[in-house]
């Protein structure tokens, strides 16, 4: 089908992007806008590596069409830090060794942000349930959970 020009609001700016209706939000972000923080792991909503926030909700950007996101506020990992420095979750992941290879980290941190926005003092069980949709092959999750706990207490 015909390509079309859409405007996506990403990390606070309006960005133009050429897509087809079938273009996934993940591809529009990575290939259209050069925002390669969101990763493709499984491509069917199992692994969470492509997690971004859309209107504050964590979603799998491999399971959303770019055209569905028109009119919404999108936050990717590139938009999390400010001029003043990294986000407390990013600091906590570094401090506590919450990452090794880093592929899952952007999705993990954004899922954690959504969790803390909703529940600022989660229990360990709530953290584990909140991150159940983000797979990590390196850390064994313990250090990730510790990092989120530390960010919650920061």
């Amino acid at each position: 089908m015909a390509k079309q020009l859409i405007s996506l609001r990403v990390n606070g700016s309006e960005r133009d992007c050429v897509v087809e209706p079938r273009t996934r939000l993940l591809d529009a972000l990575r290939e259209g806008l050069g925002l390669t923080g969101a990763k493709e792991g499984c491509g069917n909503g199992e692994c969470g590596a492509c997690t971004v926030l859309v209107d504050g909700r964590p979603i799998n950007s491999c399971l959303m069409l770019a055209v569905e996101a028109v009119g919404s506020e999108i936050l990717t990992i590139e938009g999390l830090a400010t001029r003043d420095g990294l986000h407390p979750l990013q600091e906590a992941f570094m401090e506590h060794g919450g990452l090794q290879c880093g592929i899952c980290t952007p999705g993990m941190i954004l899922a954690a942000k959504a969790l803390l926005d909703e529940n600022p003092k989660p229990s360990e069980a709530e953290i584990r349930a909140g991150l159940a949709g983000n797979l990590c092959r390196c850390t064994g999750y313990t250090k990730i959970v510790e990092a989120v706990q530390a960010a919650a207490e920061a």
Binding site: G45, R57, I59, N60, L63, M64, A111, L115, A132, G133
Partner: peptide
């Protein structure tokens, strides 16, 4: 149902 991400969609 699924993960938090799935349940938000």
């Amino acid at each position: 149902v699924g993960s938090v991400q799935i349940r938000h969609r």
